[in-house]
Computed example of a mutant assay.
Amino acid sequence: MTADAERGTTERVLTLLGLLQQRQVWTGPELAERLNVTPRTVRRDVERLRALGYPVHASQGVGGGYQLGAGQDLPPLLLDDEEAIATTLSLLATAGAGGAGGAVAGAGDAALRALTKLDRVLPARLQREVRALSGSVESFGGGRAPVDPGLLMTLARACRDEVETGFDYPAGRSGSEARRRRVEPYRLVASDRRWYLLAYDLDRDDWRSFRVDRMTDVTARTWRFRPREAPDAATFVQESVASRVYPRQARFLVHAPATTVRAQVPASAAVVRPLDGERCEVLSGAANLDLVLMHVLLLGHAFEVLDPPELATRSRELAQRLLDAGPAA
């Protein structure tokens, strides 16, 4: 079939779908007349729609004809696998960021509505695909840097299908000396800055989080694994990003509601755990804990250093230094 002929067939099939959405039942001769083709061509086009996943029912006898099944009152949405999955992943990430408040919360609500519509108008084959992939994505924060949708699709499918995955990954934070990693992928997690993969590292025999933008040569194998008992994906990745990835960690008791502190601190910079309505625990990390101490100080709330003990001593030293820098009484 030539390109022009294929394009004409596609346009005719879309027109057929539109006609089936306009009324309850069409006879074959009626459709043939409207499309200016033979009844045999109508039958072939109906089979094309069925192959795409649209439920076109045919009945014989008086009052019989062609009838579109569920979703007949909705406009067609013909997406290939990659388009549908890329759209779903983006909407899932936006919807997952809806707890941040303000404009982001509005975007999260809109994304949830869009996901609902997408699920209703996709053919059944793609509905099953995106519904399954939606269980492979979690989120905290919003406004992250873009990542190749094809890479996200490969990882999301690997999470869904429970197949081992390999990729090259830098050994250190400097980004040099990439090494091959073998993992059992569990969840994709979208932070306020980046995409991460939570996976069980087979060579290190432990759970790890990986930045998706640092992965190269990603391949999903056909070897399936039995899922292990896993930590909460979003919590594990956030703690890794905000604390465990750094050589030193600190923990604070902050005398302010968790919602207030979360609005002041990026999700990738600290983990904020509510204790009660007026206090929360803040966990963060850095190469130099003086930086973390200064950030907590500048939040403007009363706080106490919980860990490490030497940081409490350091805070008193810095406080005395600030007092000494003031004018003499």
Rank of each mutant, 00 (worst) to 15 (best):
S134Y: 07
S136P: 09
F140L: 14
G141F: 01
G143H: 04
P146T: 09
P146G: 09
L152V: 01
T154R: 10
T154E: 10
L155N: 08
R157V: 06
A158R: 03
E164R: 12
D168P: 00
Y169S: 03
Y169M: 05
P170W: 12
A171T: 15
G172D: 15
S174N: 14
S176M: 06
E177K: 12
R179Q: 13
R180L: 13
R181H: 13
R181V: 11
E184I: 02
P185L: 11
Y186C: 09
A190G: 15
R193N: 07
R194C: 09
W195R: 06
Y196E: 00
L197E: 08
L197T: 04
L198H: 10
A199T: 07
Y200A: 01
D201P: 09
L202W: 02
R204V: 03
D206W: 01
W207T: 03
W207I: 04
R208T: 02
F210V: 02
R211F: 06
R211H: 07
R211M: 11
V212A: 13
D213E: 15
R214Y: 10
M215I: 09
A220W: 08
A220H: 05
T222H: 05
R224M: 12
F225G: 06
F225D: 02
P227S: 04
R228M: 00
A230E: 11
A230T: 12
P231F: 02
A233R: 04
T235H: 07
S240A: 11
V241G: 04
S243M: 13
V245P: 01
Y246N: 12
Q249C: 12
Q249A: 15
F252W: 14
F252L: 12
L253C: 04
L253Y: 10
